[in-house]
Amino acid sequence: MAVDIAFWILAAIAVVSAVAVVTLRDVFRAAIFLILCFFTTAGIFVTLNADFLAAMQVLVYIGAVAILLIFAILFTRDVQQGNPSNKLKVPAAIVGVVLLGVMVSSAVTFGWPESVYLPELADTADIGQRLFSENGYVVPVQIAGLMLLAAAIGAIVLMREK
């Protein structure tokens, strides 16, 4: 019951802040609202017993993506007026409506079968076991680390002044 109330509060604030992100002219305020939207999404993950996803949402989306966004705002000039509207308004609207139609129709027509297994509480440690134990996914984890390394080095190589 309390979880339901929490879910509806978080969901309502998430939707309102997501609308605010696209309607506000001030880019910085839009970024702050995006952070609020990410945070409420993390809260919704918590109401679904997905504590790992919630922690990732806070760590990656708020910690990295939102910070990068604010960095990008700092790096630009003359953004007080926000994004000026341009000629792509009509195509963007068409694409948005089509995407919304696809998402709504697939959400309505999909059966949403419920899993017979009960969700485990706080299963982050199990994820750790799967990722790092000897008969788990150690090699993919290390490859993911290599990908991170390649991304960091690539970004530095591409952007460094000669």
Binding site: M56, L59, I67, L68, F71, T124, A125, I127, A144, M159
Partner: peptide, 24 residues
């Protein structure tokens, strides 16, 4: 400051892997 941001993101994603590992 961009380079600091890039390095920060790399270590932030590293934290994803270390978080479940640390709990276990």
């Amino acid at each position: 400051y961009y380079f600091f941001a890039v390095l920060f993101v790399a270590f932030d994603v590293l934290a994803i892997f270390l978080f479940p590992w640390a709990l276990w």
